[in-house]
Design a protein around this nucleic acid. Structure first.
Length: 416
DNA sequence: AAATTGTAGGGAAAAGCCCGGG
DNA sequence: GCCCGGGCTTTTCCCTACAATT
C-alpha cells in the first residue's frame, strides 16, 4: 500500500489503516447512498463525499477504540493492517470507483448530456459494457468475501429477508445524528459537524395491501418493537402536511409521511393523493391511482386487455413501457452485456439482477435451515418446504403443487 | 439392481407492475 | 398528461436430486 493510499479523506495513517479493513462495503454503500440524497449542491459533490466518508470512518474508528481497550491500539492496528492489507487496497479501489460513479451520476442530472434531441434518455448509446457502480462493488465483494450477510452469519444473528443493501435503504434509524465530537488523534484535529437527517422512506406500498418494501419494513419495525413509519400519520402540523416550510434547502421537499421530492408539483400531487381529494380507486382490488391514466392502465391487469402490439412479432402487452422494452429487441439498440458470461438484456434492472448473481451475495436466509439465496422470491418458494404449503391445486383431482410448473407437469401427465 | 417416472426444489431469466421525475 | 428510466415483484422455464415404481 502506498503512503498515499494510506491517507483517505485526509485522515491520519492510524485511522485509515485501522478503519479501512473493518469497513463493510455494503454498509458503507448504504451510508453513502443515504447521505448523498442530502448533498449540498452548492459545494463540490466530491468534497461532500469525502466529508461523508470521513464521518463514517471516524465513527468506525471510535467504535474500534472503545472495543479494543484490552490490547494496545498500536498492536491491534498493526495486526489488522497486516491481515487485511490486500483487502484494504481493494476496498479503497471500490470506494474510488463508486465515488467517481456517484459523482458522475449525480452531475449527469443535466438532461442535455443524457438525452437525444427529442429529450429522450438514450443510455444505450453510452458504453454500457462498463459495469455500474453496484456491479463493481458486488464483484469486488465476492473477491473480498465480506458480504453483509456473512458478517451476520458469523455473529450468529440470522438475517432472514435481509434487505439488499444496494436496493433498499433499511431505515434502522428514524433520525440519524452524529454528535459534535472531537477526534482524539493528534493528526486528526477534526471537528465533526452535527448531521441530522430524517429518514425519508422511498419504498412503495400498494393500496390493495399487497406486500411491498414499505409493508415489509413496516412489519419488521413492528415486530422489532420499533415505531414504524405510517403512510401519512396525523402530525402536529396537520394531516399530511409538509415540512417544506421548515427546510432550509429549498431543493428538497419532504412530506411528513416520508414522501420526498424535489418538485413542488409532485408534492402537491402527493398530498392530493394522500388526502384523497380525487380518489381514483380500482373497484377490483382497491388500488389507488395517482391519476386517471394510471387507473386505466392498472385496470388492464384485471381485464387482461393488451392494446400494445408489436408489429414485428405476436407480442402484446398491457403497458406501453413494456412494448418499449420489447421493441428494443427488434432494433439495433445495444443491449447490456455481461462480461463474465454471454448474458445480455435490454433492461438495466434485469442486468443488475444478473450481475448480483455473479456476486454470490445471498442476503436472504431461511430461519429454519441453512438455505440462503440472493432473492426474496427464491426464499418464499423455499419456505413452502417447511410450511407444507401447496398453493397450486389441480381442478381434476386432489393433487396440490408447491410451484406452478409442477402443477402444469401434473396436468400434462395425468389429465392431458 | 437397473431403468423409468413423478415430485420437489433451486437458479436464472423474462416480464409485469408501479412510481417519480423530466 | 405523456414519456421514460428505475426498481421491486411475479411468473416462467430449465435443471438436478431424490424417492417411488416397474
Amino acid at each position: 500500500m502506498s503512503r498515499q493510499q494510506e491517507f483517505i479523506c485526509g485522515l491520519s495513517h492510524e485511522v485509515t489503516i485501522s478503519v479501512l479493513p473493518r469497513l463493510n462495503m455494503e454498509e458503507l454503500m448504504f451510508e453513502l447512498n443515504r447521505r448523498i440524497q442530502n448533498l449540498d449542491k452548492k459545494n463540490s459533490i466530491k468534497d461532500r463525499l469525502v466529508s461523508i466518508l470521513r464521518d463514517v470512518m471516524l465513527e468506525e474508528y471510535r467504535l474500534l477504540e472503545r472495543t479494543s481497550e484490552v490490547s494496545s491500539p498500536e498492536e491491534k492496528t498493526v495486526t489488522i493492517a497486516v491481515q487485511n492489507q490486500e483487502t484494504a487496497i481493494m476496498q479503497e479501489n471500490v470506494l474510488t470507483a463508486c465515488a467517481e460513479t456517484m459523482v458522475s451520476e449525480t452531475s449527469s442530472f443535466d438532461a442535455s448530456q443524457l438525452s437525444d434531441g427529442a429529450g429522450r434518455h438514450c443510455h444505450d448509446e453510452f458504453n454500457i459494457d462498463t459495469p455500474t457502480c453496484s456491479t463493481q462493488v458486488q464483484d469486488t465483494l465476492t473477491l473480498m468475501n465480506t458480504s453483509y450477510s456473512e458478517k451476520h452469519a458469523e455473529s450468529n444473528t440470522p438475517c432472514e429477508e435481509a434487505p439488499s443493501a444496494s436496493r433498499h435503504l433499511p431505515p434502522d434509524h428514524g433520525d440519524v445524528h452524529i454528535k459534535m465530537e472531537r477526534h482524539v488523534s493528534e493528526d486528526d484535529q477534526i471537528w465533526i459537524g452535527q448531521v441530522s437527517q430524517p429518514y425519508t422512506d422511498q419504498t412503495k406500498y400498494y393500496a390493495d395491501g399487497r406486500e411491498t418494501s414499505f409493508i415489509k419494513e413496516h412489519s419488521r419495525k413492528e415486530s422489532s418493537g420499533e415505531t414504524p413509519l405510517a403512510p401519512c400519520e396525523p402530525t402536529p402540523y396537520g394531516d399530511c402536511e409538509s415540512t417544506e416550510s421548515l427546510l432550509t434547502d429549498s431543493s428538497s421537499r419532504i412530506d411528513l409521511c416520508g414522501f420526498n421530492t424535489t418538485r413542488a408539483c409532485s408534492l402537491s400531487q402527493h398530498r392530493k393523493f394522500d388526502k384523497q381529494e380525487n380518489p381514483l380507486i380500482c373497484s377490483e382490488c382497491g388500488y389507488r391511482a395517482h391519476n386517471k391514466n394510471r387507473l386505466v392502465e392498472h385496470m388492464r391487469t384485471h381485464t387482461g386487455e393488451k392494446p400494445f402490439k408489436c408489429n414485428h412479432c405476436n407480442y402484446k402487452t398491457s403497458y406501453k413501457q413494456e412494448l418499449f422494452y420489447h421493441m428494443k429487441t427488434h432494433t439495433d439498440a445495444e443491449p447490456y452485456r455481461c462480461k463474465i458470461c454471454d448474458y445480455q438484456t435490454h433492461r438495466k434492472s434485469n442486468f443488475e439482477t444478473h450481475m448480483m448473481r455473479h456476486s454470490g451475495v445471498k442476503p436472504y436466509k431461511c430461519k429454519e435451515c441453512d438455505y440462503r439465496t440472493a432473492h426474496k422470491g427464491d426464499l418464499i418458494k423455499h419456505k413452502r418446504r417447511h410450511t407444507g404449503e401447496r398453493p397450486y391445486s389441480c381442478q381434476e383431482c386432489d393433487y396440490k403443487a408447491t410451484v406452478k410448473c409442477n402443477l402444469v407437469q401434473h396436468m400434462r401427465s395425468k389429465h392431458q
